[in-house]
Amino acid sequence: MTNAETMESTTTNTPQHDVVIECDIRELYYGNFKAVRDTYVPIHKGAITAFIGPSGCGKSTVLRCLNRMNDLVRGFRFEGRVNFLGRDIYDPAIDPVAIRRHIGMVFQQPNPFSMSIFNNVAFGLKLNRFKGNKEERVEMALRGAALWDEVKDKLHKSGLSLSGGQQQRLCIARAIATEPEVLLMDEPCSALDPIATRKVEELMLELKEKYTIAIVTHNLQQAQRVADKTGFLYVDTTEGSRTGYLVEFGDSDRLFEAPQEKYTQDYIRGEFS
């Protein structure tokens, strides 16, 4: 039922080749714990896709699936497929490091390295053995993250000397410096105040011109403001365990105006009233 619904929205609105990542999770385990099941999400090129849902329903888990960050968790096991450029990234022949070069990530907590602002942004360039003009690249990335004006005079100060909001934008700059195709953001604004949140949101809207973005958020207004597509995940407690699954996926306008599933209606109504 969920799948049928999502299929419909993808086929009617956009041609299939516009999908950059096609994520189809049938079952996902941490050790013996089944964390997510039956979740099909297409990530569209040049759009912002948001994941919403109650805490612990597996939003971060789904997002981290998309660039194989979950490989770092011992005991992680996955049944299903995640297609990137038409290729299953969980194919044993695929190098997860190569995948992460194309699908970057920004985390919930700002996590700059304890090096200078410049070196933080240039980190990905170093990893990619970038031979060109680093200064230009770093400036571009910092401008892209709307941070350039604030830090251009202190590029050689430690990245840790910045405020929380600045640190988060530094992390975004770090992620976009290598121009990945897709940017995954896990609650990028949860550690920020409303003004910094605004800035990051505006930034996302700018970035989507060049990048495909998938974001997890607890803030429904935020999803409504920035996301083109939204997926709602929910925890299924009927089987005795807490397994998350995708309840509904579609254009944000439609999902927030007229949710079709009861769980979605309850959740959205509860949040807004």
Binding site: L85, V97, N128, F130
Partner: peptide, 28 residues
């Protein structure tokens, strides 16, 4: 500006060999 890593063109069947594991890759 040009992409830093060899990125695949958005043709229907993009070349994905650069995503594969290989010990010929210096870093690996």
């Amino acid at each position: 500006s040009a992409n830093i890593h060899p990125s695949a063109p958005s043709t229907p069947t993009p070349d994905t060999r650069h995503l594969e594991k290989s010990l010929r890759n210096k870093q690996s």
